[in-house]
């Protein structure tokens, strides 16, 4: 978030060589499954994510109250009770319900943003690494400019200029994360573009698109999967930060960062209003990071 641009640790650039698209798909799914069962850290991370995913999907049925419904009676005693298991917030809204709906928000915005960044970044990285020359120089230069921009300032400028909406958050995250993913993919592309099997594909008369997607891309699978999970964690933090700074999703719809911002002044009196969403957002990021670590350990042995 925050903030800095954190690329996956360096050791990850070493990718096992995969030849065909089918092998990629098979290994990808199997690799993930293997990592989930082999590494306790990955299992724990996966379980946390699964928990929040279930909360997000079932929010309309699980939530005891509508997320924005005010309960004036609860203002007298907002602490957790039989009616409100996690208590109510400064306006008398049920915290459990807002937490569940908030999970829905973050688990929609973060994956969409990361996926957009991954698609754009992968294409740019492939083309730039494979073509080289002017295209490469241009893509990398523009990427450098993006990365030189302190992220939080970019968010501030874009969001105060164009307004806070889920779409703008997705766009700004996609644009700032794409250069990092482009670099990872480009490094792999540069490494394999002169291999024999790529030359063979060219000789067979395969189209450039086929070469990029079927022959080259599978090599970047490992680092990409790890990076995507790390990115999901950082994006969750970024969304939380935007909410906390008051430039996230517009109220009153529940957003974990926003919940913390709104009740933060009451920390001395009603700490549960702030602590509960803080625990929620931290646990989700821990989940993503544990999963990324586990997969990395299982597939790269580092």
């Amino acid at each position: 978030m925050t903030e800095t641009d954190r690329a996956a640790p360096e050791g990850l650039a070493v990718a096992p060589v995969r030849r065909t698209g089918r092998a990629f798909a098979a290994r990808g799914a199997k690799g993930l499954k293997a990592a989930l069962t082999a590494s306790p850290i990955a299992t724990l991370g996966g379980a946390i994510i699964l928990f929040w995913a279930i909360c997000a999907v079932l929010a309309p049925w699980l939530a005891p109250y509508p997320p924005n419904q005010l309960d004036p009676m609860a203002l007298v005693d907002p602490f957790p009770s039989a009616q409100h298991w996690l208590g109510t917030d400064q306006l008398g809204r049920d915290i459990l319900s807002r937490l569940l709906w908030g999970a829905r928000t973050v688990l929609t915005v973060a994956p969409v943003a990361v996926l957009a960044a991954a698609v754009v970044g992968t294409l740019l990285g492939l083309v730039s690494g494979y073509r080289g020359g002017v295209v490469d120089a241009l893509v990398m230069r523009v990427g450098d400019v993006m990365l030189a921009f302190p992220q939080i300032i970019l968010y501030l400028i874009v969001i105060t200029k164009f307004g806070a909406s889920a779409l703008n958050i997705v766009l700004v995250i996609a644009v700032t994360k794409a250069p990092i993913i482009a670099r990872i993919v480009r490094a792999v592309t540069l490494d394999v573009r002169n291999r024999d099997y790529v030359a063979a594909a060219r000789m067979r008369g395969e189209s450039t698109l086929h070469i990029l997607l079927v022959e080259i891309l599978p090599n970047a699978r490992g680092p990409l999967i790890v990076d995507i999970f790390l990115r999901l964690g950082y994006t969750t933090i970024a969304i939380g930060v935007l909410g906390f700074l008051g430039i996230g999703l517009p109220p009153p719809d529940p957003d974990w960062g926003g919940m913390i911002k709104e009740s933060y002044g009451l920390l001395f009196v009603y700490p549960h209003m702030t602590l509960i969403p803080a625990v929620a957002v931290s646990s989700l990021v821990v989940g993503f990071n544990f999963l990324a670590t586990g997969i990395r350990e299982a597939s790269f042995d580092v």
């Binding site: 920390l267 931290s282 821990v286």
Partner: peptide
């Protein structure tokens, strides 16, 4: 150390701030 660093890097600054405030100030 790995678990410690992984957890620390996962807790957003605003959440960590809230936790530390709750313990050391409140």
């Amino acid at each position: 150390v790995s678990v410690f660093s992984s957890v620390c890097a996962s807790i957003p600054e605003f959440a960590m701030g809230v936790f530390l405030l709750a313990i050391f100030v409140v």
